[in-house]
Design a binder for these strands. Structure first.
Lengths: 337, 337
DNA sequence: ATGAAAGCGCTAACAC
DNA sequence: GTGTTAGCGCTTTCAT
């Protein structure tokens, strides 16, 4: 890799002039500029970003930490962030925590040494402690929220989405509705649960504690929880299920199949988050869809906008909430007679 | 962020000694070492990797370029690579090309400035040109291959996998077997096609050109190609389909549903690459499974091993090929009478 | 065992 | 408009 020194030498100018010709073209005479540019092209020059970042004390780099890159929801978030970062001339470093706070801590520590200018984070339950590793780094919390009042957040309307899903089931005539809900130390799970409960109360349908089962967001958790609900005595068993995330919804469908139940004839199912699975499963699933890619883009745009703003306008961090959409497909119908 | 200068000052030593105490503990007296370590802990010191990399002229960083992070196959490869890199104390920079050679070129160019010590690449059709941007950088080609004789490659036995899938269909009694194949400028597609053809010839089943349709690896391509095959006159229409990748297989299943065909009663389908879709679709799909995560891990291990080897043992680059496994589920059966 | 000093490649004052 | 110089934070000779 040729350095700016070689470019300068070939163009017969000082390194300072070469540098200016490349990054501030208007500070240099046209003839000189052309000589430098041609020399650079000739040598296939590419600036060493390490040296540049070290000198400028800014890396044009951001950190991106998600909890499960194998989940298409997170992969889509990541793509949105990376595409947006790219458009702004930034590079995003992607880390994966597998929902493990320990791994999250280590990821943030590694990241720290790379001097990112900001961080986009889908937080684990202990993110707030972990974030103390990076004081006064601009942070955007994505999808979920830690409760830190200083953080910018980009989320969806989980309460509204859950309400819509529940109201849909109620409108179909269901009165024994179960929910499979994520860990209660994660904000999305709490909010979706709240929306569910609220919608039931609002509609005058009893909220039954024993029909709400927790899971850790994985397909197998969804399956286990659904099996427990489906194995209740016939007069207690829910006729409809609202499931708190995409993977657990797949598990719930598999559970229904295992028990030989027809969807939606014997059991209606609504999932949170649309996915290819939801569209291609049989029957196609009714879901609360999220603008996933846009969430990622927005998080990144907001973060980068924050850099360029006068330092002390941090008074009130942005709190963006995007709407969800109920997509009615074929996994929901009236309860069995 | 505190620098090594502050650590040195606090410990009452020179920066040189502080540096040694942190990275070469045995070069320093025990008492000094302890003072430095305690100072570092106190200040929450984290070395600036930019400065270190600049000085040492090695970044402990590798590039990772995949063609579609939204495809779980690629997400799994990426996770394998990142987990392995992490274990070796390396950081992997992930880029996404969307199967677009132009984007690939730009990704490699950006990467170049970050001085990665090596590169793991799922190449696009024009990768060989693009790679000229990075002369004498150790490269591992993953999943697919450019034909560059100097590159290390990590792939699966595509020919064998395709043969096994085809032989399975033949053994069930199919004689009109169609294939939906990827772009012919991508090595995996060529090899899977070759395996298909070879298996037919070996079994004495005629290979019919008109039953082999190309697609660009996306679900919708698979759907379109399948529709064309399924709309052939009844006596020409294939009774079984072998589909060249995971996404196109989903498309083929949807096409069959659209035409009201029963799988496997009216049409058998085998896909290449297992996936959650394949397992949860109805019926569960018979597939050629690949050791995807291991491919990623292996690529990374091989790349990093390459750094540590004496420079001129590059005589013969490694060529690793992992086996595939035919998983027979319920999308394949005897042809209709 | 430790310190002084040079230098990785780049950009930003500060001259002129 | 261009050159000279200093310095980002770190590691590594080379002395002592």
């Amino acid at each position: 890799m040729s350095s700016i020194q070689e470019v300068a030498a070939l163009a017969n100018v000082s390194t300072a002039t070469a540098s200016r010709a490349l990054s501030r073209p208007d500070m240099v005479a046209q003839a000189t500029r052309e000589r430098v540019l041609s020399a650079a092209r000739h040598l296939d020059y590419q600036p060493n970003v390490l040296a540049r970042s070290l000198r400028q004390r800014q890396t044009r780099t951001i950190g991106l930490v998600v909890t499960d890159i194998l989940n298409p929801f997170h992969a889509t978030l990541a793509k949105g962030v990376q595409d947006a970062a790219d458009r702004h001339g930034y590079t995003a470093f992607l880390f994966n925590t597998d929902e493990d706070p320990g791994k999250e801590g280590r990821a943030l520590d590694t990241l720290r040494g790379h001097l990112p200018q900001g961080l986009i984070l889908v937080p684990t339950a202990r993110a707030r402690e972990n974030l103390r590793l990076l004081p006064n780094l601009p942070v955007v919390e994505l999808d979920r929220v830690t409760g830190n009042p200083a953080a910018t957040t980009v989320t969806v309307d989980n309460v509204g989405g859950a309400e819509a899903a529940t109201a849909h089931l109620v409108a179909l005539g269901h009165t024994r509705i179960g929910m499979i809900v994520g860990q209660q130390d994660i904000s999305t799970a709490v909010e979706r649960h709240a929306g569910f409960r609220q919608a039931l109360l609002g509609a005058g349908v009893p909220y039954r504690e024993q029909l709400v089962l927790p899971g850790h967001h994985r397909q197998e958790d969804g399956r286990q929880a659904a099996l427990r609900l489906l194995d209740l005595p016939a007069d207690e068993r829910p006729t409809a299920l609202f499931v708190g995330n995409n993977e657990m919804t797949v598990g719930a469908v598999l559970a229904a199949r295992e028990r030989g139940l027809n969807i939606p004839g014997d059991l209606s199912i609504v999932g949170f988050d649309d996915s290819r699975w939801a569209q291609t499963m049989l029957p196609p699933l009714t879901v609360v869809a999220q603008p996933t890619y846009d969430l990622g883009v927005l998080a990144c745009d907001l973060l980068i906008a924050q850099f360029s703003r006068p330092a002390r306008s941090r008074a009130s961090p942005a709190r963006v909430q995007l709407p969800t959409t109920l997509i009615v497909r074929q996994s929901t119908a009236a309860p069995p007679p």
